[in-house]
Amino acid sequence: MKLLLIEDEKELAESIKNYLTGNSFVCEWVNNAMAAIDKISTYEYDCILLDLMLPDGNGFEILKELKRQNKTEGVIIISAKETLESKIEGLQLGADDYLTKPFHLSELLVRIQALIRRKNFKGNNLVAYNELEIDILSKTVKVNSRKIDITKKEIDLLLYLIGNENKVLSKSAIAEHLSGDMADMLDNHDFVYAHIKNLKNKLKDAGCSDYIKTVYGLGYKWQHD
């Protein structure tokens, strides 16, 4: 999968690149609007990560340029700006998602995956992992082709864990992912433990291998032994 990262903050860009590259992505990075327009005119990407505030212009201009060129790449805006207007404007101009800085890299990764899934497999939203099969649209999970009883939250958690395979996920990152818009108000992340425990038990009872590893003192990790 090919990604274009348009971000003027070098340190942040490096971290994003670093994190995504480990998950079967090829990530190209540009730090200004001019170079970005150059790239998108020449190459095709699966997903574009766009910062709105660039040294030589506004990220919205790039969105307009994409539209002008009839490009269908999925765009995720990553911005420190968090006004409702900029969100709405971005989405109206053709962006698919909006992530406010600061964010967890794990969150960015699952958003990219979700976007690519939506773009590429129109309607066929299946995620498979060995004996596991998740249908995102019908919200069902099968282990060895047998449906298991699972809540929406647990499916969300499962997708998040699988999406960040082999990455250590801190408790606060998981908590923020699960609580969505409420994350800004939440200061207690203890509920993560209960969710992980429930999910683990359900998978185990269905005969699924134990992929969820505990990283002591820090968080959890989805890993195939």
Partner: peptide, 30 residues
């Protein structure tokens, strides 16, 4: 503050992935 915070967050996320830590180090990271 948002940009440095974003960098800070991203760096910690990256650091966490960079290898095996002792439990004590994990707690510091946490």
């Amino acid at each position: 503050l948002q940009t440095p915070l974003a960098v800070f967050q991203a760096k910690i996320d990256t650091l966490i992935q960079s290898g095996e830590f002792t439990e004590q180090q994990n707690q510091i990271l946490s």
